[in-house]
Design a protein around this nucleic acid. Structure first.
Lengths: 336, 336
DNA sequence: TTGAAAGCGCTAACAC
DNA sequence: GTGTTAGCGCTTTCAA
């Protein structure tokens, strides 16, 4: 099945030089006579030679490749974050491969193998099932950077959005519009959700609004949970909320649709603010007010830090938090 | 930076055997005395040895890895198709890496390098910029299967949905609901769009409805184009359409939102049928009637065929077309 | 049942 | 400037 592949030996023979010279030409070494270079390049072209990466990587100390490790491909911001990573990587002549763990711890270990086996020079993780202990260990031995989802106190660098400030800004905005009964659709696991909840709490506190546990619901980031929890919020509460802050756009769309289906209009009866600013927010009816994550920048920055680590320089800072930006659309309006 | 890695040599030394024996244990060779095997395994555990894949792959004829090659990560069906591929791959103890060309021909060549360099055993493509000639050549030398987007007459196997039949069923359904002025939002490039347009034409013909070029608009699969083209359809036509068939859900959501913003209600004033059955269709207001692609099966089948090729067996069939299934939701209703 | 040794394709230290 | 050669970590003959 597989074709006999042209090797560096074949090129050397064809060009009448040694393999070392061919290797020098391939790696743009300056100490090659112009005539020789041309001769070798001619042979390369004629034989359609392409270097075997396995051989090269085995010998070299670097593969010029990094891995993006994620738990699921179902990740609305992936495309843009990836673009940031990819464009930064390209500047260093690095290429990227994407691997999904599908949430399996086993699979994740297998993929981290690729790092330990020098199959890639470094890894950017988007959420991991590693324990703090494991992550600390891994970070000591290999270049690794966390993006978006992160664990602190492990010494592992991370690049994320300022979740607390973002949530606080979102809720403060709702307060400014005149809302006092502000609900939240959150998640009861993960650092991201926790920080956003803290931001929510802070904003309420600053506005002198007392905290009401009935107004907080916990979902799983899915559309369905947004729908279900909004129904609960609107049906359970004797004094129903006039606004909802959702910790992602997916649930916020569910919230908007559920509210309308119950006969409430958005934003007049219920104002909604999401988080992320994905296409979903734009495609929603009405388009959602949301906190925009600097997706491209997050990816770009993660790659920059990873390159520093790969090159053996400790990055100046181990923790980067970029600000989220309020994007006002039609799911919010000044309260009458 | 990088940790000194434990090699097979270290294990051999520690266990007091040769590297050959360690290799045999690693590969479950039967000709190893039980005592020796235990001794080696003990050493492996103690040293936390993990085989270097680069060395192994260089020596072996296979990597037990395949690549999924796509032009963009922004692919609403990716998650489910991938699941199909991944679960099939797992059965063969294969792992998968995903690589995006970002639409760059250059990048694509670079990635196909990984195949030619035995970095992966095979490739599943989701759309490629290769010419028919190049694809034919590649398919002759390496295991490769096309999924969803494909080129015929190259000898390269493909697994896709029956686009013509799917489109025909969608439009026939609209006809049955009583519609005669049925528009289409399509795309003016790519085989997929072409086949769906043919299906549309066939359905009209079967219903004795004459073809009206004004009712066909060409977008680029994006939400924005769905919005824009729907406006055109509703504003330009003196006799406006009562139904629209969109060749993907993304544009169909744009269609629904644009129609409502112009004061038309969906489905009463304008019925809409999408294609794909992604989350977008479910999250739309109203939820969209659409043609469901058998996403998981498409991925699974592609991987099965690829494995056959990797194992040197010519697949029984080079072309698999799975049926799309009509899913009726609230963007269509019997016409009054 | 085990070990010695060749060799996968490449790079780089060293010699000329 | 160029060639010779060792060796990256592994698998797999071949011989013992």
């Amino acid at each position: 099945m597989r074709k006999k592949v042209v090797t560096i030996q074949d090129v050397a023979q064809s060009a009448g030089v040694s393999v070392a010279t061919v290797s020098r030409v391939l790696n743009n070494s300056p100490r090659v006579k112009e005539r020789t270079r041309v001769k070798v390049q001619e042979a390369i072209r004629q034989l359609k030679y392409q270097p075997n990466l396995l051989g090269r990587d085995l010998r070299r100390d670097r593969t010029k490749r990094i891995m993006i490790l994620l738990s699921s491909l179902d990740y609305p911001m992936l495309k843009e974050v990836y673009k940031g990573v990819e464009e930064s990587a390209r500047n260093y002549e690095y290429s990227t491969i994407i691997c999904s763990t599908s949430g399996s711890k086993n699979k994740e270990e297998q993929l981290l193998q690729l790092l330990k086996n020098r199959f890639v020079d470094g890894v950017i993780t988007f959420g991991t099932t590693l324990t703090a202990q494991e992550l600390r260990q891994l970070n000591r031995d290999y270049p690794i950077v966390q993006c978006l989802e992160w664990m602190g106190n492990t010494g592992t660098p991370y690049v994320s959005v300022d979740n607390e400030k973002g949530a606080r800004d979102a809720v403060t905005y709702l307060v400014k519009l005149g809302h006092r009964r502000i609900a939240m659709i959150s998640r009861n696991e993960g650092q991201t959700a926790l920080l956003r909840e803290q931001g929510y709490g802070l904003a309420l506190q600053e506005a002198g609004i007392s905290y009401d546990a009935n107004l907080i619901k916990y979902g799983d980031f899915s559309y369905e949970s947004g729908v279900r929890l909004t129904k609960e919020l609107l049906e359970e509460n004797t004094s129903r909320p006039t606004a909802v802050f959702c910790i992602n756009d997916t649930m916020a769309v569910g919230c908007a649709n559920a509210a309308r289906n119950l006969g409430y209009s958005v934003p007049e009866d219920l104002a909604i603010v999401g988080f992320d600013d994905t296409m979903e927010a734009l495609m929603s009816a009405p388009p959602l007010t949301t906190m925009r994550q600097p997706k491209y920048e997050l990816g770009h920055m993660a790659m920059e830090i990873l390159m520093r680590k790969i090159n053996g320089k400790e990055p100046e800072t181990n923790a980067v938090l970029l600000p989220a930006q309020l994007v006002i659309r039609n799911s919010t309006v000044v309260k009458r």
